[in-house]
């Protein structure tokens, strides 16, 4: 489990010359069952990592699409217990690394040691907490790492070098590179610009580097995938799910995965 399963995934994808596709989905959007179906659909279509989003009342790092998904999920009564129930169901269908992703306060309120125990039992592989930086989260990340969970910390285009060192020290899963200064679903600069930034940062990080925020098409994924170890897609997946339904959303994932298969050989 945990960081082991991610290491294996990244080794295998390197061998097969593929890039990794991580898919974010909010538990409870459009409904509890609907989110599980969407996620298992995404896994069947080629998603390599699942980021299971726990809704929060004040998602400051998110754009309108994930804000709405979050608010629908809260209306559907989603809390950490329900999210862990979903995690455990997904794991019973699909052997895919599953990361819990959420803002810090619900985790904190649940109790961190209880969270680690219950998450382990549910088969969760690791944690992504966008508002818990390495300084404030030092104890959290260290303990999670000791327990074998994979941890994911963020890098942004404006992160200064001394912080990269700290981020390297605590990250055992992958580094989440934010493609734009902005919120999830933001408009991307040209994919080429992002790819150049990624090349620059990739030299500085010790773990695999995945790029997220604003990637909305297979074409963008292909260009960025050339420079990174993989991409993360959330907003575009949830938007397709909401506007066009489950089938279109899983097709979208399949197209993204195809684009990431071709990145290496097409150069």
């Amino acid at each position: 489990m945990g960081k082991e399963s991610l290491s294996i995934l990244f080794r295998e994808s390197a061998v097969s010359n593929e890039r990794v596709l991580a898919v974010f989905a909010t538990v409870g959007f459009p409904s509890f069952q609907g989110s599980i179906e969407a996620i298992t659909g995404a896994v069947e279509a080629g998603a390599d990592i699942i980021e299971l989003g726990i809704p929060f009342s004040d998602p400051v790092a998110d754009g309108p699409v994930i804000q709405e998904a979050s608010s629908v999920a809260l209306q559907n009564g989603i809390n950490i217990e329900k999210a862990l129930e979903a995690a455990s169901k997904i794991k019973s269908f699909a052997d895919v690394p599953l990361m819990l992703m959420g803002y810090f306060n619900p985790f904190l309120h649940y109790g961190i040691s209880k969270l680690f125990t219950d998450a382990y039992e549910a088969g969760v592989d690791g944690f992504i907490v966008p508002d818990l930086p390495p300084e404030e989260g030092h104890a959290f990340y260290t303990r999670a790492n000791e327990l074998g969970f994979a941890t994911v910390l963020f890098l942004s285009p404006v992160t200064k070098t001394p912080r990269v060192k700290l981020i390297n020290e605590l990250t055992t899963g992958f580094v989440y590179f934010i493609s734009v200064t902005g919120i999830t679903g933001a408009k991307l600069q040209s994919s080429e610009t992002v790819a150049l930034m990624v090349q620059r940062f990739k030299k500085k990080v010790k773990r695999p580097l995945l790029v997220g925020f604003g990637i909305s098409s297979p074409a963008e994924a292909a260009v960025i995938g050339k420079a990174a170890d993989g991409v993360i897609v959330g907003t575009a997946f949830l938007k397709t799910l909401k506007d066009k339904g489950l089938k279109a959303a899983t097709q979208f994932i399949a197209h993204l995965k195809d684009a990431l298969k071709n990145t290496v050989t097409s150069i």
């Binding site: 942004s156 285009p157 934010i178």
Partner: peptide, 12 residues
């Protein structure tokens, strides 16, 4: 107190 914010804001 502290600085519980997304990574991008640390620079600012």
């Amino acid at each position: 107190g502290g600085r519980y914010v997304p990574e991008t804001l640390h620079f600012a």
